[in-house]
Each structure stands twice: as C-alpha cells, then as structure tokens.
Amino acid sequence: MTLISRRALGLFSAASIMALSAGAALAQDKVTIAVSIPAATHGWTGGVVYHAEQAEKEIEAAFPNIDVIVKTSPSATAQVSALEDLSASQKLDALVILPFTSEELTGPVEQVKANGTFIAVVARGLTDPSIQDLYVAGDNIAVGANTAKWMAEKLGNEGKIVVLRGIPTVIDDERIQGFTDVMKGTNIEILDIQYANWNQDEAFKLMQDYLAKYPQIDAVWANDDDMLLGVLEAVKQSGRTDIKYALGGNGMKDVVKMVMDENPMTPVSTPYPPSMVKSAIYMVAGQFNGQAPMRGSFKLDAPLITPQNADQFWYPDSPF
C-alpha cells in the first residue's frame, strides 16, 4: 500500500515538474497574466470563475502572445499559497486578483509587486491602496440605495417592509447601509432585518417566519438574488396577496430572466456583476497588447436592471 502510494506520489511530482518547466518555457516568449480568484463555492463566485475562464479563452484567441492563467482558491490561506506558487514558477507580467480578504492578502500581493508585476485588484480593495495599479469594483452602497429609491417611489414613500441580509461582511454591511439610509428619508417602516447567509434555504425559512410574524408586509428586499428565490417560494406557499414587491440584487441569471419577462413582483434587479473580473482582465490585456494603458480606480455603477436593458445583463450560459 505504502509502495503504491509512494510511486503515485513520485509520478505526480514528476508530472508537476514537467508542467512547471513547460510553463517556464512558455513564459519566455509570452506575456503572462495570472488571475487569482476564489473557487466557485456559491453562485456569485461561480459566476466569477465562469467570466474569468471566458476572458482567458477570448483573450488567448485574440492575442496569441498573451497567456492567461486562471487559478482558483477555496480560502484566504490557499490564495496566499497560490500567489507564492504562481510567482515562484514563472515571471508574472500582471496579476489580476479578487482577494478573499483585504487584510490577509495585502502583504503577499505586495511581494508579487516587488518583482515588477502589474497589479489589478477586483471587487475587494487591499488595505494599502498604493499597491494596486488598477482597481475595478462594483458599488455595494449603490446596490442598496438604488433598490431602496425604486422601492420607495413605487410604494409612494409609505408602507411596511422586511429585509433579509447575507453573511456578516463589509459587502453585506454596505448594501444594508445604502438601503437603510435611503429609507430613513421616507415614511416606510423596516419591520425587521435578519441574517439568512445568502442561502436559499435559510431565506425560505426566514421569509416563512416573517410572514407568520407580520400580518401586513408591503415589500421584501433580499440583498442577494439567491435568497430572493427562497423568498418567492415562501410567498407563493403562503398565498398572501399583501406583498407587492420582492426584490433582490446581484444580477443572477434566473432573476434577470424574470425581469425580462416583466414579472409583476420582481420587475427590477440591481447588478453587482461577477463579470467585473472579465472587465479587469480585458483592461490589463489592453495594457500589454495595444499599449492602451489603464491605471486608476474604476467603480462600476449599479444601474437598475429593467425589462428594457435586461438583455445586457443576461448570461444564459453562466452558472450564475
């Protein structure tokens, strides 16, 4: 048994050395762009992986001298190791990174930069912004605020609503802050805000409980489309007719499709698109091919997705 596993180990390491040297050989006559992103553990990161892989295919086809390497990591520590592995085995001309956490990844990214690598940070900023050459992110406050403005207008600044929030993180805090700040300026009463961890099942249960607790709910906001699907199922089961609107956020394809089909309960959504990683990779590629330099911070807006523009936000082949 030990013999077999040792042999397997030997084979495996031989293979990985060959792969490494092949990578090194390629790197000599090619520009290498490394992309480090979280592994697909839920819908949104699944979308990130999909768009990164699409960008890899498209850019490598369009610019044969550019090699894009997409590496996914299941945790912050794994991402730090992935950065070490990537930069140890080859010279990186650019790194596009969606950091798991700001604090833990700042140091390792700084070390990669010390070798002269162009750094593009996506979605979550590093603790020290001077490390990044390019920063592309969505606007979580606008996700909350734009949804709140639309909802307040439709409800005529009156009514009772409930809110489902995600996992305790900065992303979640900002969305809730953007939403509640707008609602403070209206007569709309937020009856309850509870965590459902961006999970469909938990959102379903929480919505059932909200429905049992409050006899009158005019609208619901789940700050993510995954949760919205759970909410809609609970509302459907209850047979209640007082709920006029149930909105989400993020631009999940099922929900964008509902918007396209002019669903009366969910007529709009707000994007925090995983495709922002693709925008960043394209910007970096422009740097190395067409000599179209891109530096600075780019904040993607969160415009309302409506039946009129929904087709721009709809990716039928994406998992998200």
Partner: peptide, 12 residues
C-alpha cells in the same frame, strides 16, 4: 420540490 434546485450551499 421545496426550492427546486441543488446548489453548493445546499445542506451546509
């Protein structure tokens, strides 16, 4: 039949 889908967070 409850939500009609399996996701990576099902049963977490």
């Amino acid at each position: 039949p409850r939500l009609g889908a399996a996701t990576p967070t099902t049963g977490a």
